[in-house]
Design a protein around this nucleic acid. Structure first.
Lengths: 291, 291
DNA sequence: TCAAAAGTGTTGGACCTACACCCATGT
DNA sequence: ACATGGGTGTAGGTCCAACACTTTTGA
């Protein structure tokens, strides 16, 4: 038999075929309410969720996703699913991880490849109709509840329980996971157990994974600039970094660090009750050490 | 209809289902021939390949892989495929990327999730029978042929042509790819085009991707120790780092850098025609900044 | 006037790079 | 004896954390 003959007679059902979806974890950073006319508004990390219109998990919130169509790449499928729910287009997306647990979907075996997206929310307007087929930003609050650490012969195990609270104006979605970080012969292995989740499927795992990746990438890439508007003050940029890294930074040091990643403009942000701040734009030619 | 009813009546063929495979890129570092009794043997990065026994790409070399079975996780599938070809068990594996291009397999649509593995080849004995259903280590030689760089309004584009030569005692497998690294608003986007490949499918893309990831991870993890035997001299460890990083390192500086990752033993490597060198073991409790 | 943020300068320490130098071995 | 790798010390520079300080605005 020739290869040509083989391909002509190939029966695609010879091997088991699962369903395949893509899911996206799209982050933004948005202002919370202002208390004081002089103070800068507080910012919060938010994630895009959609309300499921159909079974399973009907009326539950979930990450936006879709089944991958026959002639469509993963990237095309993700973009299509985001455009269907919001007017997002050409946003920054990055493949994160593929979830293959045989039991992760109650319908049948479904494999999902997750993508992380970052947007500046000022550019995006969600089609929020108030119906069940709804999309909304939810602020993310993480609380590490309990930590346990044990050494063993291979290295050690750290267990951490995390409460993940997702909130929008009307709703609150509670989740609790146990994150186990194990060091086996120097290799860090992380796995997550869902203890309680009001999100659909294993989406809270995907969310935790994406947050972790985001935090890592902030330190050695310019990924955070995807969350910024075109023109911004350095203090606002610093706020974004502080949220992503989960710690406060010293102003003088921060400015030295990002000095080459930004370009000064002649414009100022005025009428703020304090000294006007210069507006900066991202330096698109900033070369990381990668090149 | 309740969720229970929905699930009972769910038709898994409602959405398109592709085939799903896993493929693994397993690296090792092994000695080349010795020329001089005093000199250390040269080391080379190698990758595990198997010869395809069936169509498509019959008799071509490919990365070891398998279709994922109905009740099996990705990790189980990868381990099963490696054990079938070699006696590898419990090796270090890490999920890399999922390849979803609709045309990547000539049979039907096949999605593949690739895993990277690292082993110390002294521990592994490949079942190499000389038949068509064979497995073998191939040394990897990379040659960057041509580079082109252009600036545009978003950032810049760098194009690089790379020859990937894979060799074992009897055979030589030639490949040529074009790697395009694009900087779009500060986000690095990499895509690879196959210009010529004697490997099956898009496996040369997976290989290039894995090499890239390996090089990156060497710098901020202890991943390289997976390639070492239990006891080793610091010079041999340095050789491994030099191969992975693709550059020579200064001895004194290298030793200071890895000082805390290793533990001195009382044993020596003798009879080498020069001063005996102390043997070290990996410090399994070395803490990276991650924890 | 003054709270709040904008913005800059300095200092000490940690770490990295490059180089120089001596030590021990077995053929 | 000597080539070869084993092993250590030092000087100079860079980068970063921590802190102190000055400037500017608008209610």
């Amino acid at each position: 038999m020739t290869e040509e003959e083989f391909l002509k007679n190939y029966d695609s059902n010879r091997f088991f075929k699962p369903s395949v979806t893509v899911d996206s974890i799209v982050f933004t950073i948005r202002d919370e309410e202002i208390e004081n006319y002089r103070k800068l508004p507080e910012k919060k990390l938010q994630v895009l969720l959609v309300k499921r219109a159909e079974y399973p998990y009907k009326d539950k919130w979930s990450l936006p996703g879709t089944f991958v169509r026959k002639e469509e790449s993963f990237e095309e499928a993700v973009q299509r699913s985001l455009k269907a729910k919001t007017n997002m287009e050409y946003i920054y997306l990055e493949q994160l991880y593929s979830w293959g647990d045989p039991k992760r979907d109650p319908r049948t075996r479904v494999i999902s490849t997750s993508y992380m997206g970052l947007v500046n929310s000022e550019k995006i307007h969600i089609k929020s109709g108030g119906s069940t087929n709804d999309a909304s930003w939810f602020t993310i609050t993480l609380n590490s509840v309990k930590e346990k650490m044990n050494e063993n012969k291979h290295g050690y195990i750290k267990e951490e329980e995390i409460d993940i609270i997702l909130e929008n104006k009307n709703e609150i979605i509670k989740n609790k996971v146990k994150v186990v970080k194990e060091l086996v012969n120097g290799n860090q292995i992380i796995y997550t157990q869902i203890l309680y989740s009001e999100l659909a499927f294993d989406h809270v795992k995907m969310l935790i994974y994406a947050i972790e990746r985001l935090k890592n990438k902030v330190e050695y890439t310019t990924i955070a600039f995807n969350l910024m508007p075109e023109k911004f003050t350095l203090t606002k940029l610093q706020q974004v970094y502080e949220i992503l890294l989960g710690k406060t930074l010293l102003k003088a040091n921060f400015r030295r660090k990002i000095a080459n990643m930004v370009i000064e403009t002649e414009e100022y942000d005025e009428n703020a009750g304090h000294r006007p701040s210069k507006l900066y734009i991202f330096n698109k030619n900033w070369q990381s050490h990668i090149f």
